[in-house]
Amino acid sequence: MKKILILMIFSFLAVSLMLFFMQINSSKSSMQSISGDYYLTSNAKDFNIPNVVTSIVTQYRGYDTIGEITILFLSIIGVFMLIKTTGFSEISKLLQEPGTIVHTATVILFPIIMLFGAYIIINGHLSPGGGFQGGAIIGSGMLLLFLAGDKKELNRTATHIVESISVSIILLIGLLGIYYLNAFFANFLYSLGTFGSIISGGIIPIIYILIGVKVTVEFFHLSEYLLRS
């Protein structure tokens, strides 16, 4: 009875949502939103990079990104408070000892995954990709090391320091924007490089590389804590 009631309520919700979005869709036809129109037309003269989504994420809506990495940081702090780590235990014992295939494949695949992730991060302002995506790739690739049975203790102080320093430098770059151009996250290196080359877009690739480092360490910590909890 209870389940039927829940199903009815949610099917009503689904139908009303569908009608709502069809209403929006028929009124919008084929128009950009006002902000989307502005970002697309002013991107060329503001930042001079091909990928408009990157310039929105790191520059036009830089505050959003600061909030986002703060949320990542907060979730990691919550994880630290929830679980005490005492060396490798239960969960890692449940994993089977890796066979020859996993071990050999890790040796071959791990450098390729690292390279691909670095490529995604560095080309974030030229092609689809960026710090978050590349960081997720590298951080998940590091899980392969654990699966291949490399269970030696890691220097956790070093990873924490790397994470903190990358966030601090992002904030420092934002403050330098205030010093040079009177706006937080202002692009004070704008004139660097030509359109479409790696060194272009001023501070955008620098911010994205630092975000990539932070996300990598974050993902790495998550998988490591799950295995060591």
Partner: peptide, 27 residues
């Protein structure tokens, strides 16, 4: 919304999809 120099200077809002929701979904 990944456009070259020519496309970005010649009315890009008419040839590209809306980039704002994509940036929001990335977040």
């Amino acid at each position: 919304p990944i456009l070259n120099k020519f496309q970005q200077t010649n009315n890009p809002a008419a040839i590209s999809v809306d980039p704002v929701p994509q940036a929001l979904v990335l977040t």
